[in-house]
Design a protein around this nucleic acid. Structure first.
Lengths: 106, 106
DNA sequence: TACACCTGTAATTATTTTATTACAGGTGTA
DNA sequence: TACACCTGTAATAAAATAATTACAGGTGTA
């Protein structure tokens, strides 16, 4: 979900639709730096939305090609209701101040 | 899109599914503080996923009830491709260092 | 009046996310 | 060897988000 919460990442998916592109080429098409692209690609990989595979070009150069993992997600109050059962708010525990122990609040 | 990129906000939608709840009650059910809840609600409102309406309870207390605006969004490479045409990366302009003018990079 | 509810918001701090800079190392060709 | 490509990552800076604290003000009831 958070994986799709960024315009660059949406654009990566758009550019990857139907074809495979290697990192440097993708960086050029997006007009962003490679380190930044790597960061976004990592997020997409973690979310299982893309995969990569290193291949050797005709000359001996290693190229890392990315491609989409097909997906179709429907977002509606119902599907979110289902999904939210799974979700957790990481971090430690902690009570919720300002919610129960208040005597009139001030 | 970013509006749904947070577990609390997903939970708000889950809790709001089918019923209307006022702010304080919602804060209790979610076990978070009201200020935090307000922040998340504001984001959901900006994304047009929820609306609020202030009503007076039987005794004269003002209650701000929130409810869902029905929605159903399909996320797939195709729909994202469409959507990404619209999107922009705010901020100023700026070139993309490390992408074109490099002479061998180091 | 005190208390238990309700409404909000401004200011600050903490945390996460995004983005840049600076590296390090590989292959092939002129 | 220099150059033009390719691969990556560690460290840092900048910006956006999330969360807390501290207020301010309202109604109704004991």
């Amino acid at each position: 979900m958070e994986a799709l919460a960024n315009p660059y990442r949406l654009k990566i998916i758009a550019l990857l639709a139907g074809r495979r592109i290697h990192v440097s080429q993708l960086a050029r098409e997006m007009v962003i730096s490679r380190p930044l692209l790597y960061m976004h690609l990592k997020r997409l990989e973690n979310a299982r939305l893309v995969t990569s595979k290193i291949e050797l070009s005709e000359d001996g150069k290693a190229m890392n090609f990315y491609e989409l993992i097909p997906f179709a997600i429907v977002l509606s109050p119902e599907t979110i209701g289902e999904a939210s059962k799974t979700l957790t708010v990481q971090k430690s525990a902690g009570t919720a101040p300002g919610t129960k122990g208040e005597k009139g609040d001030k």
